[in-house]
Structures are given as structure tokens and as C-alpha cells.
Simulated scan of single mutants.
Amino acid sequence: MRCLKKIFLIVLFFTFTLKAQAVRLKDIMDVEGVRGNYLVGYGLVVGLKGTGDGDQTKFTVQSVVNMLEKFGIRVQKEQVKLKNVAAVLVTAYLPPYAKPGQKIDVEVSALGDAKNLQGGTLLMTPLTGPDGRVYALAQGPVSIGGFAAGGAGAQTQVNHPTAGKIPNGAIVEREVPMEDINSQSSILISLKTDDFSTTSEVAEAINSYLRGKFATPADLKNIELKVPEKYRGRVVALLGEIGKLEVRPDLPARVVIDEKTGTVIMGENVRISKVAVAHGNLSVTIKEAPEVVQPLPFGRGETAIVPRTEVTAREEKAKIVVLEESATLGELIRALNAVGATSRELIAILQAIKSAGALHADLIII
């Protein structure tokens, strides 16, 4: 067990004491106006093998009746028995500058009480945007990337059988109106990191490449870029060139904790003030050994179960480690390794250090 603790802390140490590496500007920036849109639609998946919605799913029954009426077939709701049809919600992402005729992927999710969408086919489904207009039409066989099967006594399942995808399952029917980027005289670049130092460094890198003061930091994540004369009408080429520039983001001091999995992620700029850490374990063991007591032969009484509970408590001697002022992440990891802290205990220690005001970093719990 102690070996596993050391492995965890050593891996954490070597992972996050590496210096920040240079990254391409295109990987950490967005351009104002260049954005996609989410689409959504309601449809029916048919051809299921008895795993569709039940008769109690009224909106699926109504949808089937409405669909049949479009084909000139009139039926009563009471005559429709559903087993091979499922109502689904269809979602898709329409990328920027998508043109009519292009194909995009769609995701299909069961909306009623269907048990499995395996082998089903999505009927033609209009996909609408936030403005209510239809931008794509989806149709095709659903792939769930797994399976679900079982019998009366056992069942097996791989992946999630009530949600799937249709690769290239939708055809774009309408283009989203967007301003011609090549006609712009200035553009706004938004960084994916909120940091003044990184914003200033990116602006300097752009100005150095363009050999002039064209980029101006507007705030902690936005940069105003005036298009140079030689790039007028060729803004796409300009963005392609500056996107290849390499910069070194100055990451903020941050500790991210996932209490559900016991994962702790630390940035390299995490610092602590001088603090003493005492770590000890208290374990309580409860054993239940019920005893059966029977009356004497021919005696009056009944057989009874008498509880027998044994409780023991053991507390390990606390280990105290003093962390000096301005301790680095590596020193913090080595100190916590010395007291034998597991990932769960590391979370509690970091929270306590933050409460003491000695951890100089944002502590984020997810």
C-alpha cells in the first residue's frame, strides 16, 4: 500500500514540475464572429427488435399516428401498439461557414422508455437552430457503439444502448448568415486563458511577426488586431500565419480537486508559506458475531439471537512536517510523500493548508 502511495506522488511530481511548453497560437485562441451553432430536433427511430417505447409513452404513439397520416394512412391511437419505434431527441453541431450540401454528425438519444436503439434507423428529422429555422435534415442508421442482450436470469451491456450517433447523418440545408471575414479591417482575437501576462505576450509575438504595432491587448483575454495593408482582403491568410506562432502561456497558480475520484491536479506555479503539517490516521473497527442461544431441553423459552459486538479503535502517531516559505510544488509533494498521504488524504491536507491561508493558489473543487 505504501508503495502505491509513493508511485502516485512521484507521478504527480514528475508530471507537473515540467516547465510550460510553447504552444501554437491557433490552439489557444478564437476569432470573434467565427462560431458554430447547436441544432436540435425531434424524431423517430424505427426497426427496433421489441426494445422501443411502451404503449404508455403517449407522445410516441401520437407521433406515429401523425407520421402515418402524412402518408395517407389513418389509424386510431388505440390501434397503435409500439414495440419497434422509439421517440428520440436529435442533436448536432453546425460548424462555422458550413455550406448547403455538406454533411455533419448527429447524436440520437432516447426520449421515452425505450430500452435499446440498436439496429434502429432514424427517420427524416428537421434540425432547427435557436431562431427556430431548419438548418439541416437528419436520417440514417443509428450506431450505439456497443450492445445490450440478456435473458430471464442474466443481462450484459456494453456502452449506453439508449444513445448513439449517425456519422455524416445530417445534410446542411441552410447557411448561417455570417460576415465576410476577408472584408474586415480589424478583428478581435479571444484567448482561451484569462491572464494578463499571456495576453501581453501574444500581442508582442504578433507585432514582432508583423513588424509593427498592429495588435493591442484590450483586456485579460481579448486582443484587437488591425489588419495590415498587405493583408487587406486576405484576412484568412493572416490568421493562418499568426496561428502558427508559438507562445508560452503563463498559467495561473491553481489546484483542481475531483473529490469523486480522488484526483488532484496542481499547476507548476503553486506556492505555499511556511506551515506545519501533522498527519495521522484514526481507524475504528466494528465486528459483529451474533450468538444463537437455545433453552434447556423441555424448558420454557425460545431460541434467540444475542448480538455480540466488538469495537476497537486505533490511532497512528501523527507525523509532522514543516514546509518552508515559498515552497515549490516539488517540495510540497516530497513533504506529503514523507507523511505517507494517499490521494484522498492529500485533498484534505490541501484544503486545510488553504484554510490556514498558506496555499497561494486557487483551489477548485469539481
Rank of each mutant, 00 (worst) to 15 (best):
L82C: 12
A92S: 14
V46D: 07
V40F: 09
G330V: 02
A352Y: 14
T128D: 06
V256Y: 11
Y97L: 08
L363H: 10
D27N: 02
Q351K: 15
Q139V: 14
I171V: 15
A341W: 01
G212L: 00
I187T: 04
R211G: 07
L346E: 00
T156P: 04
I365G: 07
Y231E: 09
L18H: 04
G340W: 01
D250G: 11
R35G: 06
D105W: 15
R300T: 00
S190N: 15
Q62N: 11
S283Y: 09
G120R: 14
V256L: 14
Q21P: 03
R271V: 11
M124P: 10
F147K: 04
K26N: 15
V236S: 14
E324V: 10
L122Q: 03
Y42I: 05
D194H: 11
K317R: 06
V11N: 01
T193A: 13
V65A: 12
I353R: 08
V306K: 10
F196A: 11
R300K: 03
A86M: 09
L359V: 05
F196T: 06
L332S: 00
G299C: 01
G150T: 12
A92T: 12
E32A: 15
E107T: 15
I166T: 09
E69D: 09
Q56F: 06
L4G: 04
R344W: 06
S355V: 05
F71L: 07
F59M: 08
E241D: 04
E107P: 12
S283K: 13
Y209K: 07
Q184I: 09
K19P: 06
A358W: 12
V64I: 14
G140P: 14
D30M: 12
P95K: 10
I171T: 15
N37G: 03
F16S: 02
D27H: 03
D27V: 04
A87M: 07
G169Y: 08
E204W: 03
G212E: 01
V275K: 09
D362I: 02
T312F: 09
G357K: 01
Y135V: 06
I286H: 13
S190V: 14
E259D: 10
V247F: 06
L359G: 04
G151Y: 15
E241G: 01
A148P: 10
